[in-house]
């Protein structure tokens, strides 16, 4: 088991607001983290900070035994892959070309994608269930298709740590299940870990081993999913009471409406 990312005493602010204070987080291989919290609690900003795309107000993040912000952008992208919340269609590129950009951090300035890179991209397209779209221009895809192409790109990056911002946006339930299985298989292992922003507690429970919850006032709860889930059941940390029916792998989370 290796430590892929470690944050210490992390403080993130947006304007006057404290998004999180004194956050200590250690992401190790074999773990999968769910990042939970209400709208505007700072999940995306925290994800960007952990990815090295946003500077924290205070505290340190270590990746590959080096301070994250001193890591060259290319080296950082070899260690951390990110699925951003919003997809941009760019202009003119095909689905295959887009997924191939996932190989960008692995290629030298002058090199073209090799046969291996194309094979990796094609495999990732198949994993995400969009192999039939390879030659289509990005601009012709539906929201769900675009989302899966983006996920394929993250997979093609083959980084030990993958961070997903709401990966299930726009996906129908069949694709949610398929992508969930794919992420568990390909992003979690002896050398891999992932963290995903999710709102669905059932997905968070069944897909993740650990939960990280931001309360929106700078406070946070992190740890094995059972521990954090107990807190969520006791206190309305997500702004609404939550019930759990059943235990363990049969558990179902329910949001009582009255």
């Amino acid at each position: 088991m290796t430590v892929l990312l470690e944050a210490r005493e992390l403080r993130i602010e947006r304007g006057e607001r404290q998004l999180c204070t004194a956050l200590d987080l250690r992401i190790e291989s074999t773990q999968s983290w769910a990042l939970l919290g209400r709208n505007g609690a700072g999940k995306t900003t925290l994800l960007h900070t952990l990815a090295g795309l946003h500077m924290p107000t205070a505290g340190s993040i270590t990746c590959a035994e080096q301070a994250l912000h001193t890591l060259a952008p290319r080296a950082r992208a070899q260690h951390i892959a990110v699925l951003l919340q919003h997809s941009g269609p760019g202009f003119g590129a095909s689905v295959l070309e887009t997924v191939l950009t996932g190989r960008h951090p692995h290629l030298g300035a002058f090199s073209w994608e090799s046969r291996d890179d194309i094979a990796i991209a094609t495999r990732c397209l198949a994993i995400a269930g969009v192999e039939g779209l390879a030659q289509r221009p990005l601009t012709t895809l539906s929201g769900g298709e675009l989302r899966r192409v983006e996920i394929a790109r993250v997979l093609a990056q083959q980084a030990p740590l993958a961070l997903f911002d709401e990966p299930f946006n726009h996906l129908d339930i069949a694709h949610q299940a398929a992508i969930l299985r794919a992420l568990r298989t390909h992003c979690v292992g002896p050398a891999n870990a992932m963290l995903m922003v999710v709102h669905d507690l059932n997905i968070a429970w069944h897909a993740c081993t650990h939960w990280l919850l931001l309360d929106g006032h700078g406070g946070w709860h992190a740890g094995p999913r059972d521990t954090v889930a107990e807190r969520v059941l006791r206190e309305p940390l997500l702004g609404h009471p939550v019930e759990r029916l059943g235990e363990g792998e049969r558990a179902v989370f329910r949001i009582p409406l009255d």
Partner: peptide, 11 residues
């Protein structure tokens, strides 16, 4: 072309 944030994420 896919946005500077995405470009930064790709190194």
């Amino acid at each position: 072309t896919q946005g500077m944030l995405r470009a930064a994420a790709l190194g």
